[in-house]
């Protein structure tokens, strides 16, 4: 049997491999090459060396966006996971209407980012109008607007993952803890949390990368206003590529840097949280 699998291995892998090379490897390599070129369309590129990277790093907007994105990611990763875990914890207590709550909390995740952005822009502006300001008056409104929006959208999804994790904890572990005289808080932090560590890993990974890569919501909510102060990395790359003549290569270089950052952060995070996972 094993032999048969081995024999046909190349045949079965081939289609996926071809697709992978065509739609992932080739564009990826092409993208990296283009980041060293000056071009208008991909067919008329010519090599300029690391000039694009120098420009990207000396670009005030890019550094601003990097800092804004970092702040945003830190805050949203913490808030999304804390809120999602609390919801998951509450909704596995057997309260009445649990499944309705789960559905309701999950729903926002099904709405597209652009639509969400516009809806929240209207709502936030309606509230802020009472104080005679708009969301674009000060970057802090945009920042917290984005945090609220992201939480509202991502909490439900993370909650589902946490619920699955909590439900997988063998009841005898909690019972044993109780019999040993553990308080509720102790049971939570000493038993439940370590046991759902694998869920925490995946949730942290998802929130971290999603927050870093946030684009639609950013575009629709503030589009970087005021003065690009609320523009995140993805939006900055987009505007550099499309709205500045002669800067296409720089946009591409920014995208490569962006990829490296996201990759590095998420791999580090995976490494550290994986180490904390326990087997029951």
């Amino acid at each position: 049997m094993q032999k048969a699998y081995k024999k046909y291995f190349p045949l079965f892998v081939l289609p996926t491999l071809i697709a992978f090379i065509m739609f992932f490897c080739v564009p990826f390599v092409l993208g990296i090459i283009l980041s060293f070129c000056k071009f208008t369309t991909v067919t008329n590129a010519h090599f300029v060396g690391v000039e694009n990277y120098i420009k990207a790093f000396s670009n005030k907007d890019f550094l601003n966006a990097l800092w804004f994105t970092t702040k945003f990611t830190v805050v949203s990763v913490v808030t999304v996971n804390v809120i999602a875990f609390s919801f998951a914890y509450a909704l596995t207590r057997g309260i009445k209407g649990t499944s309705i709550f789960r559905t309701v909390f999950f729903m926002p995740n099904l709405i597209g980012g652009i639509v969400l952005g516009y809806i929240w822009q209207l709502m936030i502006n309606a509230v802020l109008a009472h104080f005679n300001v708009t969301i674009t008056t000060d970057p802090k409104y945009g920042f917290w607007g984005l945090i609220i929006l992201t939480n509202w959208q991502m909490v439900g999804y993370m909650m589902i993952i946490y619920i699955a994790g909590i439900q997988n904890i063998p009841t005898e572990l909690i019972e044993a803890a109780k019999i040993d005289g553990a308080s509720k808080a102790q049971a939570l932090f000493k038993v439940t949390v370590p046991m759902v560590m694998s869920s925490i890993t995946i949730c942290l990974f998802l929130t971290l990368t999603n927050s870093f890569k946030l684009f639609d919501q950013n575009l629709a909510l503030t589009a970087g206003l005021p003065s690009r102060k609320t523009a995140m990395l993805a939006l900055d790359i987009y505007t550099t590529f499309y709205n500045r003549n002669g800067w296409e290569g720089v946009g591409q270089a920014k995208a490569v840097i962006f990829f490296a950052i996201v990759g590095l952060i998420s791999l580090t995070q995976l490494y550290f949280t994986r180490n904390k996972e326990v087997e029951s």
Partner: peptide
């Protein structure tokens, strides 16, 4: 470029709101 126009627009908004 569009970026020039955008930047100018952002500055005008800041001016209009007194910032």
């Amino acid at each position: 470029s569009q970026t020039f126009k955008d930047n100018y627009g952002y500055a005008l908004l800041d001016y209009a709101t007194g910032q």
